[in-house]
Design a protein around this nucleic acid. Structure first.
Lengths: 363, 363
DNA sequence: TTTCAACACGCAAACGTTTTCGGTAGGGTG
DNA sequence: CACCCTACCGAAAACGTTTGCGTGTTGAAA
């Protein structure tokens, strides 16, 4: 009750206090504290920030009172004054997707470490939603963006919304699904190289008929992984046959296309550009009595839940989402907190590696 | 260039314009527009909001100018003035978890529909982080919370941080991992009933030795599901044997405990309270040469990626995360946007249902 | 007694809005 | 010519902070 003693210096206090009790603990402001203690707002503010301008007496009184009523400075007011919100905006195609969830997790980690919050918007693979969300956040709500392009945006190749926010002086970091048409910091993996290594691995195991299950070409990462596949074949003096490549547009007809591939081409190994395709290959194979890995080897991409828990567990290219997220957040915060602007943009490449599991021969 | 004609009315304009061009498209404010057009800030504001107070001429001029320079009102300033941020805070244990990701997705949907943003914080199952995050957001950043308790919070049973923000007048909606110790809106499933139905289903299939793989009791949903299991046995005149129940503390020793259960008790069916436990049962069974579903049936909980894609696909209690998220967001926004405060809190129960797949006999 | 420094504090501007209230100029009416 | 009304616009407060600067008081030194 040292606190109360300090505060009771004011005679009017006992009366005024009723106001606070009545109002419960509803958000105290500097102004209210100032009124109660009969000092100016600036005195209160300075006291709380321990300014030498203010006498020890007053400081103690104010600090005690503030603590008693659990004063916390209002974030919005601070944001307005400082012209920075200490929050970063994330725009991704969807969140119900293991890879994107891990990236968010990574971003949140370093955001938290640096006193930032993250606000998440989902584009749902839609160009329009991506644009709307960006415009919504760009008007003061956040200090910078971390984003991965929607499929539709990649298809349209329209990036004006991104260029605009960058021109407004708001930093943007793109990850995974990026474009070279806009200049900003980027975090990616070497999709082509990773795919190359996976396919090369299969070829070195002695497989002769390595098929590819991939996406349509406008998905940037899908295209790159396809190129890696082709290059690996070429470098090993193998012919890429069109029939051994299936490109899947929407997820729904995925099964039938894969089934046809298995039936007609009878590959001895498959490289799939994501884990959903990979697990579907295994499912279809099982259905047809083809044993994985004895009769067919499968390598997927993105080391997610599916790869770990399917039976057999899937050998896969691990793409460390946490690391990508952390890296992206670090790049963004670095840029936000440096004094002079730097026109030099960086692209960080996160390393990948092959996680060997049960869908490829153990030796 | 109707726009330009309108604006050129001002003679000083061509000079001032240089300022803007130089500054690129950097965020225009009312004040700047006012200066350029030589009117007051209020006139600009009113013009843009189409007030009848302003003459058509001025309105057109201002609107044209604003459009040209892509004026958008600053969100932070609006938040400060209106004392509402139009963003809702989500606090969940982790995001790399299919169920929570779906809930966020649901929340984001209705948030978006109503012009709200979501800011996501992860407690990482830690009490302290949960508290810190809440305090961080409670000081003006958001209008209300949607949250699911961390394990540690459930263990400590300390909810002062939640009660505090509620007392400050900030609405909270809890989902899934809730507590009855704080009064607020809630969205849950009937965990006990859902578990009951799953176990009852197994018993009706004729299984005599139904085991349970569950969490430790302080996890609210785990406990409820355990109770459902026990009740189902009781109602079917079966004895609950202690040896048939394994409670798993941390995920790491999950495998060994399940293996021991399979070896020592040889159950003919297992009910697992989450999909991770379920898939581990199947993996262990396979390892021991026990075939699922021929020799052993398994039912899981939470219809996530694992259940869908494991082989065999897992029969499971589906817990619609999207629906829970949508419902929670709706409840919160309803409360935020109603004029007088309502002291009456609601608890919404989202229905569940059993998704029959390959881990239980097809007939 | 005067002067000057140090100390302690308040004023006011600023961040970007919205909105209430006044004020002015012009034209119409008596 | 006096008056009033209307149409149009601006000043200012408010939201909650921070901070540079001005000012009053006190004590001590001259």
């Amino acid at each position: 009750m040292e606190i109360l003693r300090l505060i009771k210096i004011k005679t009017t206090f006992s009366y005024e206090k009723l106001f606070f009790i009545d109002e419960m603990k509803r958000k105290v402001t500097l102004k209210q504290i100032a009124r109660e203690l009969d000092v100016s707002i600036s005195t209160v503010s300075k006291s709380l920030r321990n300014s030498p301008e203010i006498s020890e007496d007053t400081k103690q009184k104010v600090q005690a009172f503030a603590k008693l009523y659990n004063y916390k400075p209002n974030n919005i007011a601070l944001s307005l004054k400082n012209k920075k919100t200490k929050t970063i905006g994330i725009i991704i195609p969807e969140i119900v997707h293991h890879f994107f969830a891990t990236v968010i997790s990574g971003i949140e980690q370093v955001a938290n470490e640096n006193g930032y919050n993250v606000i998440v918007c989902l584009s749902d693979e839609s160009f329009d939603k991506e644009v709307i969300n960006m415009e919504m956040l760009a008007t003061g709500s956040i200090d910078g963006f971390i984003m991965s392009l929607s499929k539709e945006t990649q298809l349209k190749k329209d990036f004006h919304h991104i260029v605009e926010v960058i021109n407004q002086g708001m930093p943007v970091v793109m990850f995974d699904r990026i474009t070279n048409d806009v200049f900003c910091d980027k975090v990616i993996i070497d999709d082509q190289m990773a795919a190359y290594e996976a396919v090369d691995y299969l070829i070195n195991k002695g497989f002769k008929k390595v098929a590819l299950v991939t996406t349509v070409d406008y998905v940037s990462v899908g295209k790159l992984r396809t190129e890696g596949y082709l290059k690996a074949l070429r470098d090993n003096n193998m012919m890429a046959e069109e029939d051994m490549i299936v490109k899947i547009e929407d997820i729904d007809n995925c099964s039938v296309k894969i089934e046809r591939l298995l039936e007609e081409q009878k590959p001895d190994a498959i490289f799939a550009v994501n884990e959903l395709f990979a697990v579907t290959c295994i499912k279809m194979a099982a259905k047809m009595g083809v044993n994985v890995p004895d009769d067919l080897s499968v390598i997927g991409f993105t080391d997610g839940i599916i790869s770990q828990f399917s039976s057999p567990a899937i050998t896969t290219v691990s793409q460390n989402g946490i690391k990508m997220g952390r890296s992206a957040a670090k790049m963004l915060i670095d840029r936000l907190e440096m004094e002079e602007e730097d026109e030099h943009y960086r692209t960080e490449v996160i390393e990948t590696h092959l996680v060997e599991r049960e869908s490829t021969p153990t030796l």
